[in-house]
Design a protein around this nucleic acid. Sequence first.
DNA 1: CCGTTGACCCTTC
DNA 2: AGAAGGGCCAACG
Length: 104
Amino acid sequence: MKIDFYQVVYNLVKKIPKGKVATYGQVASLLDKPKAARLVGLALARSPAGVPWQRIINRKGMVSIENLNYPKELQVKILQKEGIKIMRRDNNWWIDLKQYLWSK
DNA sequence: CCGTTGACCCTTC
DNA sequence: AGAAGGGCCAACG
């Protein structure tokens, strides 16, 4: 069976441990496609059950989901449950990447 | 098959 | 230092 790029993304994302987060660009780089960050986002938008999509955030450490199936609140809630501290600034949510960024 | 589509990122004003 | 614009590339219709 042919595995497409999306599947590879899912496999990698599943390896991120609880309590850590990764950025879209980071995931793309690990897959040898540093410029495919947007594809990672697309892949996660269609992620099947079992993929911890909530652990992927953008480069600034901000939760980026806006008008999709899941509200930002849900993502934040899950991450907090996993032990991550999240700060609120204006109407956005921020994570301290220095502290929580996953490194292989 | 070809154009469009993005949960992004980097360079340049 | 902050905003804006363009590039990127596989999947989808």
